[in-house]
Simulated assay, not measured.
Amino acid sequence: MKAKIFITTYAVILSTMFAITSTSIPISFGLKMIEEKQKSVANGLIAINGLSLGLQKGQVFGLLGPNGAGKTTTINVLSYDPFLDAPPRGETYIGGINLMENPKRVFPYLGLLPQFDVLWTDITTLDNIYVFAKIKGLSNQQTLAASDALITRLELQTHKNKRLDALSGGNRKRASVVVTFLTTPRCVLIDEPSSGIDPIGRRKLMELIHERKHNATMILTTHSMEEAENLCSKVGIMMNGELQCYNTCLAIKNKYGSGFRLEIDLLKDKIKSSSDLHMVIDKITKFLKEKCNSKCYLSNHVGIKLLYLFPPINQMLPYLFELLEKEKSKLLINEYSISQPTLDQVFNSLCKKNSTANNSQP
């Protein structure tokens, strides 16, 4: 009973501090950052350097990058984190409101799913939900309706009356998702949503984001290229605090990808020795260079599996398919596939180039 009274009192105090009310939503909603810079006092490095972007309602923007690129710092700036090493320089507008000048006006429209949960571990899942519902200004009836629907959807029914410290990391993350989407936030910041969640929970979270994205502007950071391609209308790759590229996944793969890949699986029963294998590889390589493109090359081979890389010449594809179908038996080809470089391969290539450039600097 004392715990319940404490939670209720604490929720009322927090809701008063943040002054969240049911003010009207701006007609035109989106997010804009203008020349945002954030310096880390601890090591003197620029964590975010000249980041400028504009996002509209209904858009999911995926922020990709290696560890230390500045993704989480960007989320912290956008959520007005009071524990940043130094105040950011620049302007951020959420729903037309300047975040740095009027953060309390922005809070009612903001939803945040941090990388690490910020829930209280010594109270139950439902108690945590109740506290944050009060902070968001929900009535008891609204809290019950919204939380029951989300708890059922994320399969937390058996854990809702357990203390947070008794839950696994994945179930804690699900509880944080419930807190984030209790209301209908117009700007949602999601920091590595799938970290620590099992495949079923990840799928349910992706479905929830797909459902809610139409009435919100969303930014998510992730290391999962599959997640970025499935969820994001546009992505940006961030390195050393700077945005290196910004476009759709397909446009980025077309611009930064290395053409297309030809994977070949040879007829195993026709190759009796390693010398036979090398002869077949040389024959296929010569054939492809003469008939298709002199710039193609054998990138890798493991046993009877070969990988050739071609420059980005899309007009060649129909001719290549026709040629391989005609000559596959002569070349001892069992099966083959042609594909575009994946976003993961493009990301790794950009990271490698950036690392090489940094190492070459004096």
Score class of each variant (00 low, 15 high):
residue 266 L to I: 00
residue 330 K to V: 04
residue 217 T to A: 12
residue 171 N to L: 15
residue 86 A to I: 14
residue 135 I to H: 08
residue 116 F to N: 13
residue 196 G to E: 08
residue 234 K to D: 06
residue 280 V to Y: 05
residue 216 A to K: 00
residue 40 S to M: 07
residue 3 A to W: 11
residue 128 N to R: 10
residue 186 R to L: 07
residue 240 N to M: 07
residue 321 F to H: 15
residue 151 I to M: 08
residue 345 Q to T: 15
residue 360 S to Y: 01
residue 47 A to H: 02
residue 119 L to R: 08
residue 349 S to V: 02
residue 114 P to L: 07
residue 295 K to G: 03
residue 17 M to V: 14
residue 112 L to R: 08
residue 345 Q to F: 08
residue 110 L to F: 07
residue 280 V to R: 14
residue 200 I to S: 12
residue 79 S to H: 01
residue 273 S to H: 15
residue 278 H to R: 12
residue 109 Y to E: 09
residue 227 E to C: 06
residue 221 T to D: 00
residue 78 L to W: 05
residue 263 E to A: 09
residue 102 N to S: 11
residue 64 L to I: 04
residue 134 K to M: 14
residue 207 E to G: 03
residue 138 L to T: 10
residue 204 K to Q: 14
residue 303 G to R: 08
residue 184 T to Q: 13
residue 242 E to D: 10
residue 192 E to M: 09
residue 177 V to Q: 02
residue 334 N to G: 06
residue 2 K to A: 04
residue 55 L to E: 11
residue 282 D to L: 06
residue 281 I to D: 03
residue 57 K to D: 13
residue 145 A to Q: 09
residue 333 I to M: 05
residue 181 F to V: 15
residue 335 E to A: 05
residue 179 V to G: 01
residue 145 A to P: 00
residue 290 E to V: 03
residue 216 A to M: 07
residue 225 M to P: 02
residue 38 Q to V: 10
residue 275 S to M: 10
residue 263 E to G: 02
residue 32 K to G: 03
residue 92 T to R: 02
residue 76 N to I: 03
residue 65 G to I: 06
residue 328 K to A: 06
residue 141 Q to P: 05
residue 10 Y to N: 05
residue 237 I to M: 06
residue 90 G to N: 10
residue 300 N to K: 13
residue 308 Y to D: 07
residue 319 Y to K: 13
residue 272 K to T: 12
residue 92 T to N: 04
residue 190 I to H: 03
residue 61 F to W: 13
residue 151 I to V: 15
residue 59 Q to S: 03
residue 357 A to L: 14
residue 70 G to D: 02
residue 108 P to R: 06
residue 224 S to E: 01
residue 131 V to R: 04
residue 67 N to C: 14
residue 78 L to N: 02
residue 171 N to V: 10
residue 194 S to Y: 01
residue 278 H to N: 13
residue 311 P to H: 00
residue 61 F to A: 12
residue 91 E to K: 08
residue 258 S to E: 14
residue 45 L to T: 09
residue 98 N to T: 08
residue 43 N to Q: 06
residue 299 S to Y: 11
residue 322 E to S: 12
residue 263 E to K: 09
residue 203 R to G: 07
residue 23 T to G: 03
residue 338 I to P: 15
residue 361 Q to N: 01
residue 268 K to Y: 06
residue 144 L to T: 08
residue 257 G to T: 10
residue 342 T to K: 07
residue 337 S to C: 11
residue 316 M to W: 09
residue 185 P to G: 06
residue 54 G to C: 11
residue 199 P to I: 04
residue 266 L to Y: 00
residue 74 T to H: 04
residue 114 P to C: 08
residue 24 S to C: 05
residue 62 G to S: 03
residue 344 D to K: 09
residue 258 S to I: 06
residue 20 I to A: 00
residue 81 D to I: 05
residue 305 K to T: 12
residue 288 L to E: 06
residue 266 L to R: 04
residue 262 L to C: 11
residue 139 S to Q: 10
residue 288 L to F: 04
residue 158 T to A: 13
